[in-house]
């Protein structure tokens, strides 16, 4: 019973809020934007095609880079736990591991994975 009342109140309040917003929108709204004003600015010429344009956002390059850093973290947590006990050996091991991953990052950099487009 209480649930139904609460639900009714939520629905009622939402409806009233929507109606008020609609009224405010209508009162504030000016005339609609005319067609010639809706064009994107290209220096004076209209676009010939629709703006729905599929372009490549290159997530895979980002994903590969992320993997390199992620692997580093995955190894670093257990390493940090045993670092004090193992000492210099652990430090050298970690340095070797980071150098190997760094080679991957440098390769990705050379291949233009850090370029924007």
């Amino acid at each position: 019973m209480i649930t139904a009342g609460a639900l009714l109140m939520v629905v009622g309040t939402t409806t009233i809020a929507l109606l008020v917003l609609r009224w405010v929108g209508g009162a504030v709204r000016r005339e609609t934007i005319p067609e010639p004003q809706r064009l994107p600015f290209l220096g004076g010429n209209p676009p010939t095609t629709h703006a729905w344009s599929r372009y490549h956002i290159r997530y895979y390059a980002m994903a590969l880079l992320f993997l390199a850093f992620d692997m580093e973290m995955v190894f670093m947590y257990p390493w940090a736990v045993v670092f004090v006990r193992e000492g210099t050996v652990a430090l050298v091991e970690m340095l070797m591991f980071i150098v190997i991953l760094l080679l991957g990052i440098l390769y990705a950099w050379r291949e233009g994975a850090l370029e924007w487009a």
């Binding site: 290209l42 220096g43 004076g44 010429n45 010939t48 095609t49 344009s53 599929r54 372009y55 490549h56």
Partner: peptide, 21 residues
């Protein structure tokens, strides 16, 4: 595109009043 993927080529005519040009 540069990876050999079939993607949209957006044709645009820029100018004659495009400020940086």
């Amino acid at each position: 595109d540069r990876d050999g993927l079939q993607l949209d080529r957006l044709p645009l005519r820029i100018g004659p009043f495009f400020p940086p040009l």
